[in-house]
Amino acid sequence: MSAVLEIDDLHVRFTSRRGLRGRSVVHAVDGVSLTLGRGETLGLVGESGCGKSTLVRTVFGLNTPASGSVSILGQRMQGLAPAARRKVLSSVQLVFQDPYSSLDPRMRVHDIVAEPLRIAGRYAPERVVELLAEVGLDADVQQRRPAQFSGGQRQRIGIARALALRPEILVLDEPVSALDVSVQAQVVNLLMDLQERLGLSYLFIAHDLAVVRHLSDRVAVMRQGRIVETGDRDQIFDAPRHPYTASLLASIPHPDPYLRPGAPPRP
């Protein structure tokens, strides 16, 4: 399997001034290496603050790594000229966690979805309609503003925008964490359909292990800026090697009352 995204020994640090003397350095990403194969879904799990979003921002060039590299479709991003970099980056798109802050409240749906097209100089109104249809939205939503949509519909709009430039990779930063259970399933199913139809590769980030297990081919477990374990989905979930992975798994409450301690036998 050829790799579409390769992260190699990436380090990202934040320095913050603390009071009058001294600074404190946060190693938000501390030597992370990951490989995302074409057409596959790599799940990245970890608790909040472990560095998942920082990793994502670094992939998109919003943070500068202290060392290490990010390669997209075989091209090393560090040291690439801005124009070439922009071209490579158009094949990776981002879907955000918070459906409320990811859409500009002043803009109409049409303009939100069209924005990447306009920036790339490839705007065509029909393409917007096509993208909306792709995520299961009617063309008549185009003139409305984000406030008129539920969280799940907003997330669909965000996904449509991410698909605008026909990317090969979607980075999904906790795309269903803010949604209700019944809506989570809608969005997860949509993501699975899109992957099948468009042959996308997903870097799927979450703190919810059930969702990761549902979607991923391989899983990486992150803790305090490091990857503690990577493996096939079933290996990670059925036979975790790292104690941290095991403790994460043990913490998921299982949605079956008969599996709780002291439960009566199932009648």
Binding site: F60, G61, L62, P82, R85, R86, L89, S90, Q93, L94, F96, D98, S101, S102, L103, D104, I112, E115, P116, I119, A120, R161, L165
Partner: peptide, 13 residues
């Protein structure tokens, strides 16, 4: 730093 402003920034606008 709002997410919707990151979108054009990522696209290289």
């Amino acid at each position: 730093d709002r997410d919707f402003v990151l979108v054009p920034r990522i696209q290289g606008a």
